[in-house]
Design a protein around this nucleic acid. Structure first.
Length: 179
DNA sequence: AACCCGGAAGGACG
DNA sequence: GCGTCCTTCCGGGT
């Protein structure tokens, strides 16, 4: 994944016009129809990934942590059309975090410390982890905790997509400008 | 105590 | 069946 400091959020988040089109044409159609239709859209080389969102008919389960401030969750909003493989998949852990950081709804969960440096801090790890497990929906029997979540992120160090900060709840994407 | 780190093993999924 | 990306567990460091 490439983190270009010159990107604006529309390069990585769903475009408003895309969302409205899908909402108008496919509120009661299966997901596959929607995705097939989406694949007909002209490709923009600057967009590495696209995700889709449209009205949801699935209610979230009650949460263990403070439901009153829970942000509405639709699993289908988080699917990614991988332009490399042409397949639909859940986001990677780094993609997931980047989406969150670029969406002001989640600014209480985590936020940039220095966006140009790719530096960010997780303020509410339990919420981020809970959302991650819902987005990923991986069939496991263990319990995802911060240690497990952070171990996943540490693999990005050796992959070169993230840089160590050694600071609490603080991580750093490797941006193009840092190369 | 609560993080951060990376090795080891192995699972889930495309 | 295979490679990637985690998930789980852990011992050691800060």
């Amino acid at each position: 994944m490439v983190y270009d400091t010159e990107d604006n959020k529309h390069d990585i988040l769903p475009k408003i016009e895309d969302v409205s089109t899908v909402m108008e044409t496919s509120t009661d159609r299966p997901l596959d129809d929607v995705l097939i239709k989406k694949s007909e859209y002209p490709d923009d080389e600057t967009i590495e990934y696209q995700s889709f969102c449209f009205p949801c008919d699935i209610k979230s389960e009650p949460e263990s942590i403070d439901e009153s401030t829970e942000i509405y969750f639709d699993p289908k909003e988080w699917l990614i059309n991988d332009n490399n493989s042409g397949k639909i998949r859940a986001p990677r852990q780094n993609e997931f975090l980047y989406f969150l950081l670029e969406d002001s709804r989640y600014s209480s969960y985590l936020s940039w410390l220095d966006r140009n440096e790719g530096l960010f801090k997780i303020h509410q790890p339990e919420r981020v982890i809970q959302l991650w497990t819902k987005v990923k929906n991986r069939q496991t029997n263990g319990v995802m905790d911060y240690d497990t979540f952070a171990r996943g992120l540490r693999y990005y160090y050796q992959l070169g997509t993230m840089i160590k900060t050694h600071r609490k709840y603080t991580f750093r994407f490797k941006m193009l400008a840092n190369e």
